[in-house]
Write a protein that binds this DNA or RNA. Structure first.
Lengths: 215, 215
DNA sequence: CCCTGTGAAAAGGTTCACAGCA
DNA sequence: TGCTGTGAACCTTTTCACAGGG
């Protein structure tokens, strides 16, 4: 049997780490990988690795480990990474452009094929290899480039509007960097990364320690 | 009583969202806030809001809600946001510079006071208002600026080295954007954000839907 | 009647420990 | 002997549902 019914969200969130770890091990010439080794390079513990992988199928050999190449293939397939998912970035300011220059996206199957910006000076030009279009052109941009994922890198005030347009254009997977709550229908998945929020969580653990700043 | 013993991690991770939501409500002139309203602007449900806040203390009034201003104060205090935590960014490439231009950090109490880069052409200059120093100067930079948090924006190969130097310099809170596992002692907290990993998680949910890319 | 604060129940995730196969 | 695969125990988090004060 291939592809078990439901894979827990916590497991899904770790599959990319295993993939990253496997790539590292494969570069170093690994043929077989134990749950211990994979745990090390993925930064988790071995029990978790085994439980997680058991949700995909039984791809290991007792007493030996997993075939690195084959395991990589199966995780890739589960993640849909076998495919390429073109991305459109909404808001081409500092952050948007940094994302465009980040080779990690294209390398891992998420090429940024277009950007949307409201600035008339930018629209029609190509920056960092990415053609910039006006918001009203979004439907066409999505269709022409087979866009699968939208990234929100606009100021927070413009984020909900950008999300609404993406959804209108048929996009169902959105990643947002805007520090605001975004409302989407149930069938649209959205992941938010708020950098300042992350720092504040770190800040919590600083409290109670030594005093900071210009005390 | 003020400040309950242990606040669950899941709660800590949501406190910044409440803070963000409260700021929004306060700007709109809110005096009192119900768990329902706060839930809306924070993007969670009301039961969670009440449970989370109950871990900080009993700051609400039955039949009425929470005093917005006072609640904001208490959450800020719990998060240590009352203080300012200076940040050093390691690796001042595209991503590092985008972070420096992101006003959200300084606005929320995390000013980027220095950057570290290995490029001799950059060292000694000031880019985007941030002075750039060589890795060997890190200890002094941390001391002079009372740095509390280090951000890793280097290429993945250089990330562990940057982390090691930060720890040597006395930093105990690190946020990393490098797509690699980083090893740190138990008393150092590290949060990793891997943008490609986030996209791959989105990709998982795309699988099984419509076919992507250039067929 | 309204909304908080909280025990209790349910769900989800992690770790343990070992049977079973190579 | 070595390592996977997995039930069972354990822990965390979420949700429910309602008592109790304004």
């Amino acid at each position: 049997m291939t592809g078990h019914g439901h894979i827990p969200e916590a497991t899904v969130a770790r599959l990319p780490l295993y993939l990253r770890g496997l790539d590292e091990l494969l570069v170093n010439g690994a043929g077989t990988v134990s749950s211990d080794e994979l745990a090390d390079v993925a930064g988790v513990n071995a029990a978790k690795v085994r439980k997680d992988l058991s949700h995909l199928g039984t791809y290991g050999t007792r007493g030996v480990g997993y075939d690195a190449e084959y395991l990589r293939f199966e995780i890739s397939r589960a993640l849909g990474v076998a495919n390429t998912w073109p991305v459109v970035v909404c808001g081409f300011g500092n952050l948007g452009r940094a994302l465009a220059n980040h080779t990690g996206f294209t390398d891992r199957g998420f090429p940024i094929l277009a950007a949307i910006d409201t600035d008339p000076e930018k629209v029609g030009t190509t920056l960092d290899g990415v053609p910039i279009r006006a918001p009203r052109e979004l439907v066409r941009v999505v269709k022409d480039n087979h866009i699968a994922i939208g990234v929100i890198a606009t100021p927070p005030e413009a984020a909900q509007d950008a999300v609404d347009r993406l959804i209108e254009a048929g996009i169902r997977s959105i990643m947002s960097f805007a520090p605001t709550v975004l409302v989407v229908p149930d069938d649209v998945e959205i992941r938010s990364v708020d950098l300042a929020t992350e720092l504040q969580i770190l800040g919590f653990h600083l409290t109670g320690s030594d005093s900071p700043g210009s005390g």
